[in-house]
């Protein structure tokens, strides 16, 4: 049974994922242009409701499997917080960058 815990984050999609079917939100957390690992990255839906949370990889990468729609990505880190929005029209890879500090 796979749990609901957040898997390890990175840019390469796991081999069992079909980006033609999944709405994938991919991104990076940075501070002054430098990647921020260990940030708590929260996905909020169009109404601002919490949907999911992952921890950014050492390279600052994160990924969500969402549904079509408007999303907010909010990152928390001991050095500061930040957020960005992304619109996903359908399946495929959607890039979003978040700056904290």
């Amino acid at each position: 049974m796979s749990s609901c815990g957040a898997p390890e984050q990175g840019t390469a999609l796991p081999a069992n994922i079909d980006a033609g079917k999944e709405v994938v939100l991919n991104g990076k957390v940075t501070s002054g242009g430098t990647p921020v690992g260990g940030a708590f990255v929260r996905l909020l839906d169009a109404s601002g409701e919490f949907t999911a949370e992952v921890v950014s990889s050492p390279e600052g990468d994160f990924r969500f499997f969402a549904a079509p729609g408007d999303w907010t990505v909010r990152a928390l880190h001991r050095t500061g917080n930040g957020e960005a929005t992304v619109s996903a029209s359908g399946p495929g890879l959607h890039e979003v960058a978040v700056s904290v500090g």
Binding site: I17, D45, E49, F50, A52, V54, F65
Partner: peptide, 18 residues
């Protein structure tokens, strides 16, 4: 679960494959 899992829009939380 999240509203989208409750309503049947998603089958799992959004950080997991569906």
């Amino acid at each position: 679960r999240s509203p989208d899992e409750f309503s049947g829009k998603l089958a799992a939380p959004a950080h997991l494959p569906q």
